[in-house]
Design a protein around this nucleic acid. Structure first.
Length: 457
RNA sequence: GCGGUUGUAGCUCAGUUGGUUAGAGUAGGCGUUUGUGGUGCGCUUGGUCGUGGGUUCGAGUCCCAUCAUCCGCCCCA
């Protein structure tokens, strides 16, 4: 038969074979373990949401990256007017009412608004599910990827921020990955433009400043100028943003800068509290860095924001989050402040792979493969295999009567560490010849001896 | 959405200024005398050269379009 079509993955998506899954499971399990240790309760939400839930939460850019699902049935027949004349923009709402989730936070906000009466606040929820973005894929960027979210909603205490920082540190400590957790407050950024008398330029300011590390001050200054900043304002910003120093030095600098600016000072005192409470944790490979350049894109953040980065591999951020005060208001539940952090497992894995931090991840497979020469051997193999499984020893039976060499090659290729041979003599004695594939040693064991032996491996 | 890169066997790639039946390594299959794998040796399957047009006596090679890929930008995990 001729293959008409070359099979490929949809753009920006990947398959995960057994080897990748072993790695992924390990990272997922680590994250999950810490989520549970901090008392987060896991939930799941559907892959698709009504577009009304998703749109308008991520800014214009985000809205464009939403995957829309076309309505079922003869969707064109229900369109009001000539579809072609309408144009994509006005046609869209008529032919699509659902979309794939873009992150886990907005669906969570919907969940909270819907279940407000059943939830004990403050609610700690964790959620590990894939999200989809119609982005152009490139290095470290996919169209389908998992997020691992932990949020605390229904409390505006800074203790929650501190807890999430501790969670961040605990996870990367376990993964043995050196990271910086960069923190800032949207209030500080807002305070800065306030102080300069450029309050309405906040968004342009945040976007440009965020790029400072990447493109350098001169390019940022140009961008600021083209966005309407005056040269004296840019001079003032230059002084702030070219400053180098410790967390405390930066706080000192800003204290002076803000003077009587209420918003800026509020942000600053939040940072101070968080730093003070977090200093007690004592994790040494997850540094806490206050950096008032950090802006972050998602438009719903209102207070403290964070971003985790690998120290050794520059790869964009591998975790991020912040406080959002009004997210559930869009779903009819006002005054519900929340704070969350999201771990980008795809990038964490990419970074760890780069650093070769997966030393002895075992691909799960059977511990022993049974092979035989005839139907009597086959029956005994099935029987013994089931006895082993009852003792929690993964095992499998080679499905065919073949040259024994073949089944040994199979075990070798699959990484099964033991092969049990059941021939005439073994059937008579109800025993198994067990070969250790690593060193080639072979011994004859009774069934009960085999179970005992395999259990000690 | 914008700019660039690359598309030849399952995978990694070669293919000389367009010239006969398109190559290698690796993976796969068979064998190496039949109750024993990893290295060796021998044989072997497998490609309408991303797709569709065009130029030419002749196209894997040149031109156009299209799709996919990877890398930047925007934005983001």
């Amino acid at each position: 038969m001729k293959v008409i079509q070359k099979p490929t993955n949809a753009r920006g998506t990947r398959d995960f074979g057994p080897k990748e899954m072993a790695i992924r499971s390990y990272v997922f399990a680590t994250i999950k373990r810490h989520f549970e240790a901090f008392g987060f309760q896991s939930i799941e939400t559907p892959a698709m949401e009504n577009l009304s839930v998703l749109t308008g939460k991520y800014g214009d850019e985000g809205d464009q990256l939403l995957f829309k699902i076309i309505n079922s049935g003869d969707y064109l027949s229900k369109v009001n007017g000539d579809p072609l004349a309408l144009g994509s923009k006005s046609l869209l709402p008529q032919i699509s009412e659902k979309g794939l989730r873009y992150d886990l936070t907005v669906p969570f906000a919907r969940f909270v608004a819907m279940n407000r009466n059943d939830i004990a606040f403050p609610f700690r929820r964790s959620q590990i599910q894939p999200v989809w973005r119609a982005d152009r894929p490139q290095k470290g960027r996919y169209r389908e990827f998992y997020q691992c979210d932990a949020d605390i909603i229904g409390s505006d205490s800074l203790v929650n921020e501190v807890e999430l920082i501790a969670l961040f540190q605990a996870i990367f400590n376990s993964l043995n990955l050196r990271t910086n957790l960069i923190i800032n407050s949207r209030k500080i950024l807002a305070g800065i433009v306030d102080k300069l008398g450029a309050t309405d330029l906040f968004v342009a300011f945040a976007v440009s400043i965020d790029k400072l590390d990447k493109i350098g001050w001169d390019a940022v200054a140009l961008e600021l100028a083209s966005n309407g900043f005056q040269s004296n304002q840019i001079e003032a910003l230059k002084k702030l943003f070219n400053f180098e120093g410790s967390n405390l030095d930066k706080i000192e600098l800003l204290t002076e800068f803000f003077a009587d600016n209420a918003l800026g000072n509020e942000g600053l005192s939040e940072i101070k509290s968080v730093l003070r409470l977090s200093d007690l944790n004592g994790y040494d490979n997850a540094n806490l860095v206050f950096d008032f350049k950090l802006a972050r894109g998602l438009s719903y953040y209102t207070g403290l924001i964070y971003e985790g980065k690998s120290v050794d591999v520059p790869f964009g951020s591998i975790a991020g989050g912040g406080r959002y005060d009004n997210l559930t208001a869009a779903f009819g539940l006002p005054n519900m402040s929340g704070v969350g952090i999201s771990f980008g497992i795809e990038r964490i894995i990419d970074v760890m792979r780069e650093l070769d931090l997966f030393p002895d991840i075992q691909i799960s497979a059977s511990q022993i493969l049974f092979t035989y020469f005839d139907e009597a051997g086959q029956a005994l193999a099935i029987n013994i295999s089931n006895q082993l499984r009852k003792a929690n020893i993964p095992s499998e039976v080679y499905p065919d009567i073949v040259k024994i060499k073949k089944s040994f090659e199979f075990a070798d290729k699959k990484g099964i560490p033991f092969v049990g041979v059941i021939g005439e003599q073994e059937i008579k004695d109800r025993s198994v010849s067990v070969k250790d594939m690593k060193n080639g040693e072979q011994r004859v064991l009774s069934i009960s001896q085999l179970i005992e032996y395999m259990a000690t491996i």
